[in-house]
Simulated assay, not measured.
Amino acid sequence: MMKTLIVGASGTTGKHLVEQFLAARKEVKIIVRPTAKIPEFWHQNELVQIIHGNISEMKVDEMNEIISDCDSFASCLGHNLTFKGIFGKPRKLVADAVQLICDAISKNNPEQAVKFVLMNTVGNQNRDINEPISTAQKIVIALIRLLVPPQADNEKAADFLRIKVDQKDSNIEWVAVRPDALINEKSVTDYSLHPSPIRSAIFNPGETSRINVAHFMAQLILDDDLWNEWKGQMPVIYNE
Rank of each mutant, 00 (worst) to 15 (best):
D69E: 02
L100P: 00
V18H: 06
Q167V: 06
L81G: 00
V236R: 05
I198S: 11
T121K: 07
D71W: 02
V140Q: 02
K231M: 07
N154R: 03
I144N: 09
F87E: 06
K164R: 08
P150S: 11
L17Y: 12
H194C: 09
E62T: 07
I183T: 14
I67R: 11
I86C: 07
M119W: 06
K107R: 02
V32F: 00
N212P: 11
R127I: 09
G206V: 06
D180Q: 10
A136N: 14
I105H: 04
P195W: 11
S192V: 13
T208F: 01
R33I: 04
R199A: 15
T35M: 12
Y191A: 07
A36H: 08
T121S: 15
P149Q: 12
Q219C: 10
V28P: 03
A152R: 14
A97I: 04
N124V: 14
T13Q: 13
A113G: 14
N64S: 10
I101N: 01
V18L: 02
I198W: 01
R199F: 05
D223A: 09
A9I: 00
D225F: 14
N154E: 10
N54I: 11
F87Y: 15
V60T: 15
D61T: 13
F41A: 07
G123A: 12
K92S: 07
S75R: 01
W230P: 07
T208C: 10
